[in-house]
Structure formats: structure tokens, C-alpha cells
């Protein structure tokens, strides 16, 4: 094989790896919805919700319970990531990166603020005050925010083709959740705070991606991601949970009650799927860019619905088929792009 052909092959392989990582991210993210949904009806979270709802109302109960669930989610994620980094032998690199706060790890801590309290809590707010379909659709908008930021801030190249692909996948998401969205919006008296929650999710994850892209310039993805979750654990366990406990919510009581076999199993499943969804997300960014990585990652909407159908036996509706077709068209638009211009992801 001659040099040019090998060069082309190597380049294609890099881009293919990037897309593969992003696709794994979408699958794992979709899988995460199974434990993410189930955990709400398990002890002690259902009791917790009931107790707080009796005293402070449903909305507050939802938020406070969401904080505890998200905190446990972050905890199991970091355990999964520690095992992962241990296997890869990257603890040394983690320590070296952690101490470089100013040039490097600050980006990951910033990312954790936008990805954690802003995006995840925003999702829960949207879910609680408007509905699950609205939350899912709102979150689908995050690649728009992410790719605009990445291109404006550090000149990441977004081709027309990639933008078209991202757009088609978002349309697909809208169609998939469309029926539910109309029902939720049509039910009247939707509280505006629900829309704020949706906005928080889209903007939070978009900003997280762009910031992470900045930190990943000079850090290893596996390590950077673990630091990002270290930040999120600090936010939940050192700040949010104690503050809510001081405010009089039964946080500690229910946190201690979470150590039941079934609950722990579901939380561990959530941690593994969420953790590795993030691993693959962060790994795709340096290879294909934040815009494309997030765009393909958006296929999670499709996978989430598919897995819910497979595991919970819900009947798929025609909107899924139509929306899924849009998602596939969008992905194909991106996969089939001539990537020779992607030698570098940044403009000169």
C-alpha cells in the first residue's frame, strides 16, 4: 500500500473511532433511562418522596428526591470510573492532572457545575413540572448550544453537513417525543419553572461539552472525566445534600436507607451505564469534535425509547418509527461525510 492510501486509511480509522465512541455513548445513555426510571419507585426514594410531599408539596418533594438520587448516581459513577482508571493504570496521570488546577483541571470542575446541578437538575425540574417527554426534547437541543459555543469560542469546524446531521437528529427526537409533548403542553397550567428546567438542561450540557473540549486539549479523556465527576460529587455530597439536611429535609435518614440490595443494584447499574456513557462521550470529542460527538450522542433519545419498549413492554407508536427514520438519516448524513477536511478539527 502506498503512503497516501495508508494516510487516508489511518485518518478514516480515527474518525470512525470517534463516531463509534459517540454511538456507544448514545446506547449507554439510552440504557441509563432504565435504572433512571426504576429508581424512583424503589425504597427508600418512594417513601422519601411521599414523606416530603405530605409536608411540602409534590414539586418540592420531586426536587429534593431528585437531588438525593442524582447524588447517589454521581457516587456510583465515580466508583465505576475509579475501577476503570485503575484497570487502565491511570491514577498517576489523574494525580498529575488534578494538581494542575489553573491551566487544566479547573475546566473539568467548571464542566461539573454545568453538567451536574444545571443540566441534570434542570432535566428533573422539566420532568417534574412539565413532563418526561418535554424534558427529553428540551435536552435534545444541547448539541446546538455545544457546537455553537465550540465554534465561536475556540474555532471548532462545523461543516454544513455536520450541522444538517445534528438538525435531523433533533427533528427525529421531536417526532419521537412529539405526542407526549403535545399532551403535556396541552394539559394547561404548565408552570414556567418547568420551561426554565428544560432550558437549564440544554444550555448546561451544551456548555459542559464546550468547556470539556477546552480542558481535553491538554488532558486525557478518562482522567478529565473522572475529575469532572469528582467535582459533581463534591457539589452534591458536600454542598447540596448537607444544605438540604440543614433546611430540615430528611436527607441523611433516607441516604442511609438506600443500602438495600435491590436499590444498590439499580444504582450500580445506573452508575455503570451513566459513567461509561460519559467516558465514551469525552473520548469522542478530541477525535470528531464537540459538535459531532454531541450530535451522535443525541441518538440516546431513540435508544432510550427502544430500551423502554424492550424492557417494559410499552407498545411503540408510529411517531417512533418516523422519528427514528429522521435520527438514522441524520446519523448517516454525518457518518458519510467526506472527512478529509477533518485533518484538524480546528480552523487555522
Amino acid at each position: 500500500m502506498d503512503l497516501q492510501a495508508l494516510k487516508k486509511l489511518e485518518h478514516q480509522r480515527r474518525v470512525r473511532y470517534g463516531y463509534m465512541w459517540a454511538l456507544f455513548c448514545a446506547i449507554l445513555w439510552g440504557l441509563w433511562y432504565l435504572p433512571g426510571t426504576v429508581v424512583w419507585v424503589l425504597n427508600p426514594f418512594d417513601e422519601m418522596y411521599a414523606e416530603i410531599a405530605a409536608g411540602s408539596g409534590d414539586s418540592i418533594a420531586l426536587l429534593v428526591t431528585a437531588v438525593l438520587i442524582t447524588a447517589f448516581n454521581a457516587l456510583t459513577v465515580i466508583i465505576a470510573l475509579m475501577v476503570w482508571n485503575g484497570v487502565l493504570g491511570k491514577f498517576g496521570e489523574m494525580k498529575r492532572t488534578l494538581v494542575e488546577f489553573k491551566p487544566c483541571s479547573k475546566w473539568f470542575f467548571l464542566a461539573s457545575i454545568f453538567g451536574g446541578p444545571m443540566a441534570i437538575l434542570g432535566s428533573f425540574i422539566a420532568m417534574g413540572f412539565v413532563g418526561a417527554a418535554f424534558a427529553a426534547v428540551a435536552a435534545l437541543m444541547y448539541p446546538v448550544v455545544g457546537s455553537i459555543l465550540a465554534s465561536q469560542w475556540y474555532g471548532e469546524k462545523i461543516s454544513k453537513r455536520a450541522a444538517t446531521g445534528i438538525f435531523l437528529i433533533i427533528v427525529g427526537g421531536f417526532v419521537i417525543f412529539g405526542g407526549g409533548l403535545l399532551t403535556e403542553l396541552g394539559s394547561g397550567n404548565v408552570q414556567w419553572i418547568g420551561y426554565i428546567g428544560g432550558l437549564m438542561a440544554a444550555i448546561g450540557w451544551g456548555i459542559e461539552g464546550a468547556i470539556a473540549g477546552k480542558g481535553l486539549d491538554i488532558a486525557e479523556p478518562d482522567v478529565g472525566l473522572t475529575l469532572r465527576f469528582l467535582g459533581e460529587n463534591i457539589i452534591w455530597w458536600v454542598i447540596a445534600v448537607p444544605l438540604l439536611a440543614i433546611a430540615g429535609f430528611p436527607m441523611i435518614k433516607y441516604a442511609l436507607m438506600a443500602f438495600e440490595p435491590l436499590t444498590i443494584m439499580v444504582l450500580v447499574f445506573a452508575g455503570i451505564t451513566f459513567g461509561f456513557c460519559y467516558v465514551t462521550w469525552y473520548k469522542s470529542f478530541p477525535l470528531i469534535g464537540v459538535g459531532r460527538g454531541q450530535g451522535i450522542g443525541n441518538l440516546y433519545g431513540l435508544f432510550a425509547v427502544l430500551f423502554v419498549i424492550l424492557f417494559f413492554g410499552d407498545v411503540p407508536s408510529w411517531t417512533l418509527l418516523l422519528g427514528g427514520a429522521f435520527c438514522l438519516a441524520g446519523s448517516f448524513t454525518m457518518f458519510s461525510e467526506d472527512t478529509s477536511s477533518l485533518e484538524s478539527l480546528r480552523g487555522d
Binding site: 495508508l6 481535553l216 486539549d217 479523556p221 484538524s344 478539527l345 480552523g347
Partner: peptide, 15 residues
Amino acid sequence: ELASGGMLKDTETKV
């Protein structure tokens, strides 16, 4: 990754 991020560029390749 550094090259893909535009911080390095390749000047020469050989098999």
C-alpha cells in the same frame, strides 16, 4: 489527539 485538536500538525509521514 493533540494533532486532531490542532496543536500539532504533521510535516512528514513514512511507512
